[in-house]
Design a protein around this nucleic acid. Structure first.
Lengths: 131, 131
DNA sequence: GCCATTAGTTACTTTTTGGTTACCACTATT
DNA sequence: AATAGTGGTAACCAAAAAGTAACTAATGGC
């Protein structure tokens, strides 16, 4: 009885992807972790404008969606390392394409200026800095 | 003086892309329009769970970001056709990859069931329906 | 004269998201 | 005895996004 509307076969997995990574912070977190595992404080330092609460929350969601591995070490002060799962690694090239697309589509925007974050919060451990 | 934090060169154009398409509705709108131009009411019918206010808003934002072309015809009742720009067309293959990724990464989810929308709102014009 | 039609808009409310500040556990160092 | 250091959590508040319902303009058809 009910007639069927034309629909897009790709819509729903696309919605799912967007639910998982489609916000301000998550793609950045994934890209930062693409060089290897990183501690909570390090991520927080590299994304100085995110609040600790939100970062915690984003990391939890990414972990729940199977994109991050969280390793907690029984040390004082605590150490927690986050790293990408295989699932997440498979997404990196696509994130790269999204990034490339913006660079091509909006050449008038200077994305360069975002590359270096100065005067961010400094975690105490030393490997945070570049020479 | 200020030491520089390691940063990711891709982060900012990625953020920009996510600002433009990283939400629940916009990728769907783009994919629906990938088959050709479409009227407002048609889009609203194909995405029955979006409110008219939000759809209007999303379309406006996509237009402002150069992804959509809006053509308004001086007819009564009014007719407005939305279509993709070249910029948007360049994004489609990447959206497809995002969709493919979810299908592969989450095989346990049945994205199939989203394909057909039944009992949605029906606009009066006839070309809305599939045989 | 009334209703249907389309693409919205407006005013209002609700939900979601994000941010702020203070606090905790536990140890080493000063 | 106090402080620094890390990875959080809790309570609270502000802002942004989204939903709802009613309304509009202008015309054709009944």
């Amino acid at each position: 009885m009910a007639r069927k509307y034309i629909d897009n076969p790709n819509a729903c997995s696309l919605v799912h992807t967007m639910n998982i990574i489609g916000n301000k912070w998550k793609p950045i977190i994934l890209y930062l972790l693409s060089n290897g595992s990183m501690r909570f404080g390090m991520l927080n330092a590299l994304i100085p404008t995110i609040s600790k609460k939100v970062l915690t929350n984003q990391l939890k969601e990414l972990e729940n969606d199977g994109l991050l591995l969280r390793q907690s070490f029984a040390e004082i002060p605590p150490r927690v390392e986050y790293s990408l799962t295989e699932k997440a690694v498979g997404l990196l090239p696509v994130l790269k394409l999204l990034s490339d697309w913006a660079n091509e589509a909006y050449p008038e925007m200077d994305f360069e200026q975002c590359r270096i974050i100065e005067n961010g919060k400094k975690p105490a451990y030393n490997n945070v800095y570049k020479k």
